[in-house]
Amino acid sequence: MNQILLVALGGAVGSVCRYLVGVGALRLLGPSFPWGTLVVNVAGSFAIGVLAELIVARYGASAELRLLLITGFLGGFTTFSAFALDAVTLFERGATVAGFAYLVLSIGASIAAAVAGIGLMRSVL
């Protein structure tokens, strides 16, 4: 039961952070492109690289900390289900170039961010 509460707590905080990033991106950049989802996916991928290397590989952190931060917080923060819906919506609107750009940017930048997070932690630890 303690594990479920840790995941739920982390997920709740991550979801609120995802919402705030989405609102901020909408206000700053407008509704023509799903910037909020893109930013969250890239930031979440970077964070999972950092956290996986830092708390799992380097310090052998407790299962509880991994559940709270990686499964809970980042699970609530990242939005690949929203990513899929945003991509479909762009294509359905006839925005084919934007749809493909969104797919390439989301996947490529998220993988690059995860690698960068791992590399950053390996270089400073």
Rank of each mutant, 00 (worst) to 15 (best):
residue 2 N to T: 09
residue 2 N to K: 14
residue 3 Q to H: 14
residue 3 Q to K: 13
residue 5 L to P: 07
residue 6 L to F: 08
residue 6 L to P: 09
residue 8 A to F: 11
residue 8 A to L: 13
residue 10 G to I: 05
residue 12 A to W: 07
residue 12 A to H: 02
residue 12 A to G: 14
residue 12 A to D: 07
residue 13 V to A: 14
residue 13 V to F: 09
residue 14 G to R: 01
residue 14 G to S: 07
residue 15 S to T: 09
residue 15 S to D: 06
residue 18 R to P: 02
residue 18 R to I: 00
residue 21 V to F: 03
residue 22 G to E: 03
residue 22 G to P: 06
residue 23 V to F: 03
residue 23 V to E: 11
residue 24 G to T: 12
residue 24 G to W: 06
residue 25 A to Y: 05
residue 25 A to S: 09
residue 27 R to Q: 15
residue 28 L to Y: 05
residue 29 L to W: 10
residue 29 L to M: 14
residue 31 P to L: 02
residue 31 P to D: 08
residue 32 S to I: 00
residue 32 S to T: 13
residue 33 F to Y: 08
residue 33 F to N: 04
residue 34 P to T: 04
residue 35 W to T: 14
residue 35 W to P: 10
residue 36 G to I: 04
residue 37 T to D: 01
residue 37 T to R: 01
residue 39 V to A: 14
residue 40 V to Q: 00
residue 41 N to T: 03
residue 43 A to T: 11
residue 45 S to R: 02
residue 45 S to N: 04
residue 46 F to W: 12
residue 47 A to N: 09
residue 49 G to N: 05
residue 49 G to H: 02
residue 50 V to Y: 05
residue 51 L to T: 06
residue 51 L to F: 09
residue 51 L to R: 04
residue 54 L to N: 14
residue 55 I to M: 09
residue 55 I to Q: 06
residue 56 V to W: 06
residue 59 Y to M: 13
residue 59 Y to T: 15
residue 61 A to G: 14
residue 61 A to M: 01
residue 62 S to T: 10
residue 62 S to H: 06
residue 63 A to N: 13
residue 64 E to Q: 15
residue 65 L to D: 07
residue 68 L to V: 07
residue 68 L to D: 05
residue 68 L to P: 11
residue 68 L to N: 08
residue 69 L to E: 06
residue 71 T to W: 01
residue 72 G to R: 02
residue 74 L to G: 03
residue 78 T to R: 06
residue 79 T to C: 05
residue 79 T to F: 00
residue 79 T to V: 04
residue 79 T to I: 04
residue 79 T to Y: 02
residue 80 F to P: 04
residue 80 F to Q: 05
residue 80 F to T: 05
residue 82 A to C: 12
residue 82 A to V: 14
residue 85 L to A: 11
residue 85 L to D: 08
residue 85 L to Y: 13
residue 86 D to M: 01
residue 86 D to S: 04
residue 87 A to M: 13
residue 87 A to N: 12
residue 87 A to F: 04
residue 88 V to W: 07
residue 89 T to Q: 11
residue 91 F to L: 14
residue 92 E to K: 13
residue 92 E to F: 04
residue 95 A to H: 10
residue 95 A to E: 15
residue 97 V to N: 12
residue 98 A to W: 00
residue 98 A to M: 11
residue 98 A to Q: 12
residue 100 F to T: 12
residue 101 A to I: 10
residue 101 A to M: 11
residue 101 A to C: 09
residue 103 L to G: 11
residue 104 V to D: 07
residue 104 V to Y: 02
residue 105 L to E: 06
residue 107 I to C: 14
residue 108 G to N: 05
residue 108 G to E: 00
residue 109 A to W: 01
residue 110 S to K: 00
residue 110 S to Y: 01
residue 112 A to D: 06
residue 112 A to N: 07
residue 114 A to E: 00
residue 115 V to R: 11
residue 115 V to M: 15
residue 116 A to T: 09
residue 117 G to C: 04
residue 119 G to R: 07
residue 121 M to C: 15
residue 121 M to I: 14
residue 122 R to I: 04
residue 123 S to H: 08
residue 124 V to F: 08
residue 124 V to E: 08
residue 125 L to E: 13
residue 125 L to S: 09
residue 125 L to M: 13
residue 125 L to H: 11
